[in-house]
């Protein structure tokens, strides 16, 4: 009989071109990491969309909880002095 357990889920990250970050592209099921890589190649790079692939077991990813978004991200909202546009520099001053 067939294995009752569903193959684990992997997240796929693809580097589109040399010099760019790997970017999350999608996910897939595979029995192991080697098969996940092979499937990712067939599924997400059929048209030369990448030069490098990462696969990561989905269970290895720890994600923030949207319900806690306020406490996580709100504190940065009023710190506008962290942006260069906060500071007015006289026109006479160049290359700053």
């Amino acid at each position: 009989m067939e294995d009752k357990h569903q193959w684990p889920l992997y997240e796929v990250f693809v580097r589109a071109r040399g010099g760019l970050d790997h970017k999350h592209t999608g996910s897939l099921h595979a029995p192991d990491a080697a098969m996940a890589l092979s499937h990712a190649r067939d599924l997400y790079t059929r048209r030369q969309e990448g030069v490098s692939i990462w696969v990561v077991p989905s269970t290895a990813i720890v994600a923030s909880d949207p319900a806690e978004n306020d406490s996580l991200f709100e504190p940065a909202r009023d710190k506008i002095y962290r942006h260069p546009t906060f500071y007015e520099i006289p026109d006479e001053v160049k290359t700053l």
Binding site: D3, P31, M35
Partner: peptide, 16 residues
Amino acid sequence: GAWVREAASAYAAKRR
């Protein structure tokens, strides 16, 4: 295709 899925699972289990 069942035997292919079973074989892949068995191989992965063996490697673990």
